[in-house]
Design a binder for these strands. Structure first.
Lengths: 279, 279
DNA sequence: AAGTGGTCTAGACCACCAT
DNA sequence: TGGTGGTCTAGACCACTTA
C-alpha cells in the first residue's frame, strides 16, 4: 500500500529545503537551484546571478580578456533560464565589466584592449581628436597617507603608500602631470623599475601585475594656477591656469585603489564630459 | 474539391503583403503589423518601436510628466510582444527619456521634476553637498552667430541668435557666470521679461514655453584666467583661475538647441564627473 | 556544421498602486 | 479589486564566427 506521504517524496519539489524566493516564477518545472553553484536567496534572481558573476571576476576564475561560459552554460550552472542570465549580463555590459561578441562569446573587459584605453582618459585635442600620450616617470617614493589620501583610499592616516609622478606628453608637448598614490598593501611589489618597464597603460599594469581591475572612477575638477614645479614641467609661466582633476579609481565592490591629482595644461586640450546618453 | 491553393488562403499568413523582416521570429501567430501605427521595416523590431515612441515624444503626443500607454497597450498598438516593447522602453529609460513607476505606469521625464534638475548641473560643494543656485539675469541681447556658435548650434554664421548672461549664486555667493546663446528661430517669443519671470529652471522654461526638451549635453572643460568682467562679477581678483565649461545642449535626434560658456569659481565648488557606472 | 550571442514571442506570477 | 510595471521561464529563429 502506498501512503500519500510517500507520493510527496516523488513530486518535483525541493528536497534540500530551499524555498523559491518570492518574486520568482512558479510556473515552470521544479526549482533547479542547489545544483553546482546554486543561487542564494535574496531579491531578484538576476541580481543574484550578477553577484555570482562578479564574484567569479574578483576571484580570478575568469581573467581580463578571457571568454566566460556561454549563456546556456551559465543558465545551467546557476539553475536559471537564459533570459535571466541575459539580464544579469546586460547590466554588466552596461557597466563595462563584460563585452559581448556575437558568434564568439562574452569576454571580460581588459585595459589592454585599445578600445577600452580611452574610456578613462578624457583629455582630447581642442578639435576633438584623440591621441595616445607618451609617459615619463618623474618621481617615485614610499610615503605615508595624509588625511585626504587616507579618506579617499579608505586607509588609516599614516598608512604606507607608494607615490609617483608621471608627465604625459601629447604630440611631443608636455600636457599633463599625474601625481598618483596607491596603498602599498595592495601593490606590494610595485617598484620604480617595474613601473618604468611596463609596456602598456598604468591600469593594464595594475591588472596584469597585481590582479587589480579598475572598473570605475570618480573625478572632481577645479581650476588652479601653476606653481613653480608644474609651470616648469609643463613649460608654462608660473601662475598659468591649469585644470586640476582629483580622481579616485575603484575596483569591484566600490573598493578604492588609487588616488591621483592630474594637472592639465588646457591651452591645446580639453576635458570632455557627456550626460544623457546611454553609455 | 479543395485545392491546395485555397488552403493557403486560410493559413495565418500575411494578407496585406507585409513581409516579416529577417531577424524577427516566425514561431508564433501571424504578423500583426499593419494595425494602427504599424512598424516599418528595417533592423531590429524594438529599435523600430523605440523610434516610434521617440517620434510620439517629439510630436507632442505625450508631453513631459505625462503617462504613456501601458506596455500591453503599446504592444497591441505596434503589433509586437510585450517583451519587445520592454526592450525599447528599457533603452529609453537608460537614456533618461522615460521613467517607470511600478504599479503606476511609465512617464515622460520632465525638467520640473526636482530629481531631474541636478542631472545636468554638475557643480557641487567641495565637500560634495548639492545646493540649488539662485539666478540673476545680467544681460540680454539679440545677436548674430559667430563662427563657433554657428558650428555648435548647426546654423549659418550670421544667423539671428538670442544671447543672455546669468549669474548663479550658491549659498549667497556668486559662483558661476553662464553666457548662453540660442537660435531665435527655435525660441521666437523669448523675451527678457519672460526669462526673468520664469518660475523654474531654464530647461523647464524651454520645455514649457517652447516645447523643447533638452535630453543630452556635451561639455568641454578648460582652465582660464578671469578677465575684468568675470573677476568683478564673481568678486575675484583679475587673473584668478576659472573653470570654463563649453556646453552644447541637444534635444531629440541630436539636434543642438543651446550653446553656453560657463565660468566657474572653483574656490568653494567643484565639477563632478563619473565613469564606469551604469547610468 | 556547430556554437555563440541577438531578437522575438507568449504567458505566468509577483509587488506595487490606485480605487 | 484591477491595472501597472518587474521578474522569470521556455523555446524558436536569426546573424555571426570559427573550424
Amino acid at each position: 500500500m502506498i501512503h500519500s506521504s510517500d507520493l510527496l517524496e516523488f513530486t518535483p519539489m525541493d528536497k534540500a529545503g530551499n524555498l523559491r524566493r518570492s518574486g520568482a516564477s512558479q510556473v515552470v518545472a521544479g526549482d533547479m537551484r542547489g545544483q553546482d553553484q546554486g543561487i542564494a536567496l535574496g531579491s531578484p534572481l538576476y541580481q543574484e546571478v550578477k553577484r555570482k558573476l562578479i564574484d567569479s571576476l574578483r576571484g580570478g576564475e575568469w581573467k581580463p580578456a578571457d571568454v566566460i561560459p556561454s549563456e546556456k552554460q551559465l543558465a545551467a550552472r546557476y539553475g536559471v533560464s537564459i533570459g535571466t542570465v541575459r539580464k544579469a549580463v546586460d547590466e554588466m555590459v552596461a557597466e563595462k565589466l563584460l563585452v559581448r561578441h556575437q558568434g564568439r562569446g562574452t569576454y571580460v573587459v581588459s585595459h589592454s584592449n585599445q578600445r577600452q584605453f580611452f574610456y578613462f582618459f578624457r583629455i582630447v585635442g581642442a578639435d576633438g581628436t584623440r591621441q595616445v600620450p607618451s609617459v615619463e616617470l618623474l618621481h617615485f617614493a614610499r610615503t605615508k597617507a595624509d588625511a585626504t589620501q587616507a579618506a579617499r583610499l579608505g586607509v588609516t592616516p599614516g598608512a604606507r603608500l607608494i607615490s609617483f609622478v608621471n608627465k604625459l606628453s601629447i604630440a611631443g608637448a608636455p600636457a599633463v602631470i599625474d601625481e598618483i598614490a596607491v596603498s602599498e598593501a595592495l601593490f606590494p611589489e610595485l617598484t620604480q623599475q617595474s613601473l618604468r618597464e611596463r609596456p602598456n597603460t598604468i591600469y593594464h599594469f595594475y591588472q596584469e601585475r597585481f590582479g587589480i581591475s579598475v572598473v570605475r572612477i570618480e573625478e572632481q575638477i577645479s581650476a588652479v594656477t601653476a606653481d613653480a614645479f608644474h609651470a616648469e614641467t609643463l613649460g608654462l609661466a608660473q601662475g598659468s591656469p591649469l585644470l586640476l582633476i582629483r580622481r579616485v579609481a575603484y575596483t569591484f565592490r566600490d573598493q578604492p585603489v588609487e588616488y591621483r591629482n592630474s594637472y592639465v595644461n588646457t591651452k591645446d586640450h580639453v576635458y570632455v564630459c557627456e550626460s544623457g546618453r546611454a553609455e
